[in-house]
């Protein structure tokens, strides 16, 4: 299983927050819009909604998203010197597809008959 696949699904949460912690979901939401950004740029954007947010939080969470396989980090050498830039590894649609596949794989592995019964019911 690749690391970008979700490992948890929270039934009570909406959207990306069902599979990612809230701040990470917000960061990914922004990253899917811009595709490439530095942690500083993400921090500036996030600060508009969370004025108490600190740079450290954004940096730690973005590196965590790299470990999950949703972002990748690379060194950019240009004007302003070296810095890390973060890029998305998958589109939002691909990620959502992965979420659905993972959930159905888990349901089929654990509750095969009930899943089939439900699917045939909703198909009708």
């Amino acid at each position: 299983m690749s690391s970008m696949e979700p490992h948890e699904f929270k039934l009570t949460e909406e959207g990306l927050k069902a599979v990612l912690p809230p701040l990470e979901a917000e960061i990914m939401g922004y990253m899917w819009d811009v595709r490439v950004a530095t942690a500083g740029e993400v921090y500036e954007k996030m600060k508009e909604k969370h004025p108490d947010l600190r740079r450290s939080t954004v940096s730690i969470l973005m590196n965590r998203l790299c470990e999950r396989g949703l972002l990748e980090r690379e060194v950019s050498k240009g004007r302003g010197g070296m810095r890390y830039v973060y890029k998305i590894t998958t589109t939002k649609e691909e990620f959502e597809q992965k979420v659905v596949e993972s959930i159905f794989d888990a349901l089929m592995a654990n509750f095969k008959e009930a899943t089939f019964a439900y699917l045939s019911k909703i198909k009708k």
């Binding site: 500083g40 740079r55 070296m82 810095r83 890390y84």
Partner: peptide, 9 residues
């Protein structure tokens, strides 16, 4: 480290 530039002003 580059991480320093990410976290500090």
């Amino acid at each position: 480290s580059l991480g320093l530039f990410e976290v500090l002003q």
